[in-house]
Simulated assay, not measured.
Amino acid sequence: MSTEGTVSFEGEPRTGRHRMLALDAARGLAVIGMIAINTGPRGDDSPLELLYRVPYGRASLLFVLLGGIGLSLMTRRSRLQRAPLPWAGLLWAGLLWRCALLMLGGLALQSLDHGVSVILQIYALLILFSLPLLRASGRSLLVVSGLSAVAGPPLWILVQAQTDGGFDRDPVSATDQIGEILTGIVITGPYPLIVWAAPFVFGLWLGRQKLSEATISTRLLIWGAAAAVGARLLSPVLVAMFGEPTSHLDWQRLFSAVAHSQMPLWLISGTGSAVFVLGLCLKIHTWSHPLASPLVYLGQLALTAYIGHLLILALIVRPGPDTLAQGVLATASTVAALMIFAWLWRQRFSRGPFEVLLRTPTLRRTTR
């Protein structure tokens, strides 16, 4: 879901339009990656399935990184013009509305039989967590992001150790108690805020950069690739030196780069991959071409597409797929259906059906 998929500002130059289309395209790629991983299957280690699972642990990080960028762009005017802070103005109410819908919607969607850990709940709390940071300096944002990446994983292990591994990382749903919901989203769930704040806050920082400049996109490509490859290669070296972890409570887990391990090397590598994809999308200057519009529109209707794929999984796909061929077919069919819907919808409407719900009239007046 786009925190700000197609926002535009009066008088924004053409380079600004290209930036937004590139962000939409990157968000569309993140949606496709999540659809592939959520559809499955998983479990086979054949070369083809390993290739199919490349987005695992990367697409969701790209999605969250783009969410931070979107929030940064959406609140840009308030920050640059030194307007009242969000909690002193109408923007605060709009963001609270957005968070409430994402939270309630995510909890409700988690109850469906799709077998997916819904990401909307952590998305909502990440926005709330970031509100005090909207006026923070760029250096402060990098410090917070770094602290989350470095201190979040040890804290995650420490909590597990103190509870004897008592939490099972299951996603929370509407049937859980409020305390369980908050604990699950912040620490014990599949997307713990103490760890996932890192890519989101880093996205806040990226949103302040001149992403339309060629030098910036080049740096994103270089540094993103270096982080993605470097952290991944460092992991087996450290494991060889210090040994394999023997349990979820073992501090040697900190050397793991396994996807969704919540460990620093995976976080750095996966976020590096996300930054690389973002830089690549910014380098491409043909997103306004009609042939690219299905991907761009899919990114602009990211929330609708995300909800749509959960419904398709729950009502049509599950309990399958059982083979890689079935998974590829189901993924391709789902993506094609959602792209067609997004293209048809955007011929008449500027906002997706669920995106409209996030954009209250109050929020629109504040951000233009």
Rank of each mutant, 00 (worst) to 15 (best):
residue 2 S to P: 12
residue 2 S to W: 04
residue 4 E to P: 05
residue 5 G to N: 13
residue 6 T to L: 13
residue 12 E to M: 12
residue 12 E to Q: 15
residue 13 P to D: 14
residue 14 R to S: 08
residue 15 T to S: 15
residue 23 L to Y: 01
residue 27 R to H: 03
residue 27 R to S: 09
residue 30 A to P: 10
residue 33 G to S: 07
residue 33 G to Q: 14
residue 33 G to Y: 14
residue 39 T to V: 15
residue 39 T to G: 04
residue 39 T to L: 08
residue 39 T to Y: 07
residue 53 R to H: 14
residue 54 V to R: 07
residue 54 V to F: 15
residue 59 A to D: 15
residue 61 L to F: 00
residue 62 L to G: 09
residue 63 F to M: 01
residue 63 F to E: 11
residue 66 L to Q: 12
residue 67 G to T: 13
residue 71 L to Q: 04
residue 88 A to F: 11
residue 92 W to M: 07
residue 93 A to G: 02
residue 93 A to P: 01
residue 96 L to M: 14
residue 99 C to D: 09
residue 108 A to P: 07
residue 108 A to E: 01
residue 109 L to C: 11
residue 109 L to F: 02
residue 110 Q to I: 07
residue 114 H to F: 06
residue 116 V to D: 06
residue 117 S to D: 15
residue 125 L to E: 09
residue 132 P to R: 02
residue 135 R to H: 13
residue 139 R to Q: 13
residue 140 S to Y: 07
residue 142 L to S: 08
residue 142 L to W: 14
residue 142 L to F: 03
residue 143 V to T: 12
residue 146 G to W: 11
residue 150 V to T: 09
residue 153 P to W: 06
residue 159 V to T: 09
residue 161 A to N: 11
residue 165 G to H: 02
residue 169 R to G: 03
residue 169 R to W: 11
residue 170 D to L: 15
residue 172 V to T: 03
residue 173 S to C: 02
residue 174 A to W: 14
residue 183 T to W: 14
residue 183 T to R: 14
residue 191 Y to T: 06
residue 193 L to N: 04
residue 195 V to Y: 08
residue 199 P to C: 00
residue 201 V to E: 03
residue 205 W to M: 10
residue 206 L to S: 02
residue 207 G to R: 12
residue 209 Q to T: 08
residue 210 K to E: 14
residue 215 T to I: 11
residue 217 S to V: 07
residue 221 L to P: 04
residue 227 A to C: 04
residue 228 A to S: 09
residue 232 R to V: 00
residue 233 L to W: 01
residue 233 L to C: 03
residue 234 L to K: 01
residue 235 S to D: 03
residue 237 V to P: 01
residue 245 P to H: 02
residue 249 L to R: 09
residue 251 W to K: 04
residue 257 A to E: 04
residue 259 A to H: 00
residue 259 A to K: 05
residue 260 H to K: 02
residue 265 L to K: 02
residue 266 W to N: 00
residue 267 L to K: 00
residue 268 I to E: 00
residue 273 S to T: 06
residue 280 L to E: 03
residue 281 C to L: 02
residue 281 C to P: 10
residue 282 L to E: 05
residue 283 K to M: 12
residue 283 K to E: 06
residue 287 W to A: 10
residue 293 S to K: 14
residue 298 L to N: 09
residue 300 Q to L: 13
residue 300 Q to V: 10
residue 304 T to I: 04
residue 305 A to C: 15
residue 307 I to V: 15
residue 310 L to G: 01
residue 312 I to H: 04
residue 320 G to I: 11
residue 321 P to T: 13
residue 325 A to V: 10
residue 325 A to N: 06
residue 325 A to W: 07
residue 326 Q to D: 13
residue 329 L to N: 07
residue 332 A to N: 00
residue 333 S to E: 06
residue 333 S to K: 03
residue 335 V to W: 06
residue 335 V to R: 08
residue 336 A to Q: 06
residue 336 A to D: 10
residue 338 L to G: 00
residue 344 L to H: 07
residue 349 F to Q: 10
residue 356 V to I: 14
residue 360 T to M: 04
residue 361 P to Y: 05
residue 363 L to F: 01
residue 364 R to S: 11
